[in-house]
Write a protein that binds this DNA or RNA. Structure first.
Lengths: 239, 239
DNA sequence: CGAGACTTTGACCGTAGTCAATTTATGTGG
DNA sequence: CCACATAAATTGACTACGGTCAAAGTCTCG
């Protein structure tokens, strides 16, 4: 990917309000922002985020998309979750290499949650709580994901996932006119939703034919969100 | 269930060393054990464990089996995990009623993790760390479960799950001669593994015909664990 | 313009689901 | 200890959702 491309990528997948996902963390003391930016880790698309050697690490996404996945020895892959700007993840120690990896899907900027939430100032406390909430929200989504692949039909799975992404991106100002950018190939959808790539393709075609979604050039539009939620067994978590 | 039955149930699903699953917690100060037992919560089969009203609660299973599940409005059910003696779970607040419930499968005894890990004594610290590890182990298993339902075949799913249960129960001394008791109906297997009850039945039959497992009257025997692990894509987590 | 990644399509297959009936536990009350 | 009620397991026949294979078409980017 060229420098130019990388820049565009950065723009496209950066939240309007960088720490929006952390709620209370926005409007932080400029002096501390300095500290954040000094500790930013950057990854290029396809790179594996390094995990802690001994202790687990908690990270916050500043910009870009990532996914958590596992690859089986025979090549099968399961993507567990997508990680978006404002999200928190915790990476285990090197011990579970091969069991769960965090992979950058775009240019990715991360900060250590410890840095954001350190110090005893009122805002650091707020940040710490926000990180806590984000970690918890992530775990809740793992259950949604399990329901998707365990009990929903192909069509439901796709709609349900798109709706989740929609809501999460909307919360950080990354949805415009019912549309958001999505750096996810059909192969990745397949590996997320427990389906084959061919079947994902056909399911998407069907959704398009039915006028439910628009999906091209890495941008998705959801028409009639209410109807999609009903068709996709989607119920947003109470936050 | 009769009183007699209940007693048998208690015996059958109690770990040999009650807190064995917590490792370091075993061999605890008798005075503190008193405290534990005063705070034990008991549930009958089928009961829903009550969640915290405002704050999340962390619980440790002393005896019995439970499962975490979600039931969709159209009746479909997904079981997320089985909870065994020695395991820790965290229950969210009442806010996510309907999204994740903890259901007793047998007579069930729980203690609050806070009680076990409270105080500053050396053993309380050890207990606290053990609870931490148990919570983390639980989360790791969620990923294994996702791989099962997302990427394994029916046969692999069944074997993989049985092997996980085997290893977890063995760790707390509840496996004897490659055999353990398992209070799980085929319908529950189906709802765990994202399959239909009929297909679970046929898969089990096949495994029996192939001489890989024995399963009757709520007891499972795994013959040739190595071979099963290979057939079930099973790799125990590094602990 | 060419290479490689990604998407799309068709033909065919097979794993797993559905429906419905039967058999076999399991547990309760008499 | 037996009879009945209910839950759980089993079986057969048939269906269908989704997988596999293979080829062609598109899009990106260097």
């Amino acid at each position: 990917m060229s420098e130019l491309r990388a820049a565009a990528d950065g723009q496209r997948y950066r939240s309007a309000s960088t720490f929006a996902g952390l709620g209370p963390v926005s409007g932080i003391d400029p002096k501390r922002v300095q500290t954040f930016w000094r500790s930013v880790e950057r990854y290029v698309p396809g790179a594996t985020v390094r995990s802690g050697l001994h202790a687990p690490r908690r990270l916050i996404v500043v910009s870009g998309w990532a996914c958590e996945n596992r690859i089986l020895s025979d090549g099968r892959r399961q993507i567990f979750a997508f990680v978006l700007p404002g999200d928190a993840v915790d990476l285990q120690t090197a011990a579970d290499v091969g069991r769960r990896a965090l992979i950058a899907l775009t240019h990715l900027e991360l900060v250590d949650a410890g840095v954001v939430a350190s110090g005893g100032s009122r805002e650091a406390v707020a940040a710490s709580q926000a990180v806590e909430r984000a970690i918890r929200a992530r775990e809740d989504r793992l259950f949604d994901q399990m329901v998707r692949i365990g009990r929903l039909t192909a069509k439901e799975r796709v709609l349900n996932l798109l709706l989740e992404l929609y809501d999460r991106l909307e919360a950080v100002g990354m949805v415009k006119e019912h549309t958001f950018r999505i750096p996810v190939t059909q192969e990745m959808f397949a590996d997320t939703l427990g389906l084959s790539i061919v079947h994902i393709n056909r399911t998407l075609q069907q959704l398009r034919r039915e006028g439910l979604i628009t999906l091209r050039a890495g941008a998705v539009t959801l028409h009639n969100r209410e109807r999609l939620a009903s068709l996709g067994c989607y119920h947003a978590a109470i936050t």
